[in-house]
């Protein structure tokens, strides 16, 4: 671990302490995990504490962990993952916050801390159905007007549920259930841990 990452981890421990659920360093990046009740306080500290000074929110996105890896279905399903950047100290940080309920996932909005979160939270709401209490204008953003469902959830089929076509009899554009069959050309494969390991064969 390089010196700058170590210093960052130390600063995080110092200022956030027991509010951090976990802190992990991998591939030269620091990831912290925060619980929903601590989320806003942690984010505010990350921006305002001069030693941390994460003055820019680079990215915020939803992730659906429901089919992750070998044994899916454990733990909370939805998370909001935020990427922060400190222009002042030239460091990056990833913050993950799992939404507490799977049927109505909610994560507090950080738009008041970083205005750039505005559209990112709208996008996460649109695509994953994660609600951000505190967001002033939580509308759909990328999908069609009147769209039903949250298309990036893992249980939403890639082909969608409805298709649109012009109906010559009614002389208007109509929605109908999709007519294409789902297909998978290359199956998804997660190899077991000992795959190709000649010693354990």
């Amino acid at each position: 671990m390089s010196a700058t990452l170590e210093a960052l981890c130390q600063n995080l421990q110092e200022h956030l302490g027991d509010r951090l659920k976990s802190i992990k360093v991998a591939l030269g990046e620091v990831t912290i995990e925060v619980a929903v009740p601590d989320y806003l306080h942690v984010m505010q500290t990350l921006r305002d504490q001069p030693e941390l000074a994460f003055d820019e929110l680079v990215d915020l996105c939803g992730v659906d962990y429901s089919t992750y890896g070998h044994e899916p279905g454990e733990g909370p399903r939805f998370a909001a993952v935020t990427h922060l950047l400190s222009v002042a100290t030239n460091r990056r940080l990833r913050v993950r916050c799992f939404a507490s309920a799977d049927d109505f996932p909610a994560v507090p909005s950080v738009t008041a801390i970083w205005n750039s979160a505005d559209w990112f939270e709208r996008e996460a709401f649109d695509l994953y159905g994660i609600v951000f209490p505190g967001h002033e204008d939580l509308r759909r953003i990328l999908t069609d007007y009147g769209f039903i469902g949250h298309p990036f959830r893992k249980d939403f089929p890639i082909s969608g549920h409805v298709e649109m076509r012009y109906d010559p009899e009614q002389q208007r554009v109509i929605y109908q259930p999709v007519t294409i069959e789902p297909r998978e050309i290359t199956p998804r494969i997660v190899r077991e841990a000992t795959y190709g390991d000649a010693d354990n064969a």
């Binding site: 992730v63 993952v81 990427h83 290359t186 998804r188 997660v190």
Partner: peptide, 17 residues
């Protein structure tokens, strides 16, 4: 321009942002 990749060890990305 950033790419956030989550891999669960499969031959396909788990999440691409």
């Amino acid at each position: 321009f950033g790419v956030y990749l989550v891999s669960d060890g499969a031959n396909k990305p788990y999440r691409l942002k």
